[in-house]
Design a protein around this nucleic acid. Structure first.
Lengths: 137, 137
DNA sequence: CGTAATCTCTATAGTTACTATAGAGTCAAG
DNA sequence: CTTGACTCTATAGTAACTATAGAGATTACG
């Protein structure tokens, strides 16, 4: 199948496939006589794998590590679990941080209903005060 | 004061200050005879304002809009409130998405305790299955 | 006084994961 | 036959910095 069909089946963009190839996540495979890329079901499987990982916010580098170890049967998979743990911790931090941010923004939002001039806007005024709002390092 | 002192007082990096100047968020101000940048308390105030906004995840462009309107007394501040509203909505979406992601990752994590080889690792296997995990578009 | 560490400058490239653009060749349908 | 859809490559842009190189200025120490 050609790149457009692969993209459709995998639910991603054509340019993204070419980008993944460039980054070494998809193999530089066969080409037709007119230089069009050709793919098979194995490529689709790998692309699905990649997108799956991306849905879990794994970085392209991490995915590359996973792919390149794919057939290294004897290696221990300990690091895979650890990698997931790190991601879960990261996500906890992000959620916490976003929640705090949300509260700050809601506080801010209440200050002004939008009927003022910019000079009098309590939101703008508040943003000018450097009090205790360093919830992000 | 020189750039290092400003950075210290504001709690940011020297390079960041130069970057903000380049992006038009801080004025290209005075220089000493040996071309060192010179700052005063007003600059510190503005830098604090910028960092405050950044803590609220406002983009540099949004901050620029806020700064450039700063003294336009007569303009209505309606858009400021709306901007904040949009941010709050954004953050709600992000939190929701991260929570779902976290559950997926926790599911994944439970599959394997790290005692397997990569070939047998249930996490890796699971990542290879393209079932219903498209929680992000 | 010399020198070594620290601070400052500019310009450029790298980061992440794409996205957009330009310019060109190929192919199928009407 | 030509119009539109698809493909190709190469390059630049995105956000908000970060890193690097190479050079001049200043300060602290012995």
């Amino acid at each position: 199948m050609k790149i457009g069909e692969l993209a459709k089946k995998a639910g991603c963009k054509v340019v993204t496939i070419r980008y993944y190839e460039q980054k070494g996540l998809l193999p530089k495979g066969l080409r037709t006589s007119n230089n069009y890329r050709l793919y098979n079901d194995k490529d689709l499987e790998r692309l699905n794998f990649i997108m799956h990982c991306r849905n879990h916010h794994l970085s392209l580098d991490e995915i590359k590590r996973l792919i390149s170890c794919d057939k290294n049967d004897q290696q221990s998979c300990e690091w895979v679990g650890k990698m997931i743990d790190v991601h879960i911790q990261e996500i906890n931090k992000q959620i916490q941080s976003l929640k705090e941010l949300k509260h700050h923004l809601q506080d801010l939002r209440c200050k002004c209903s939008g009927q003022d001039t910019l000079a009098n806007c309590a939101i703008v005024k508040q943003l000018h005060q450097h009090n205790n709002c360093q919830h992000l390092q």
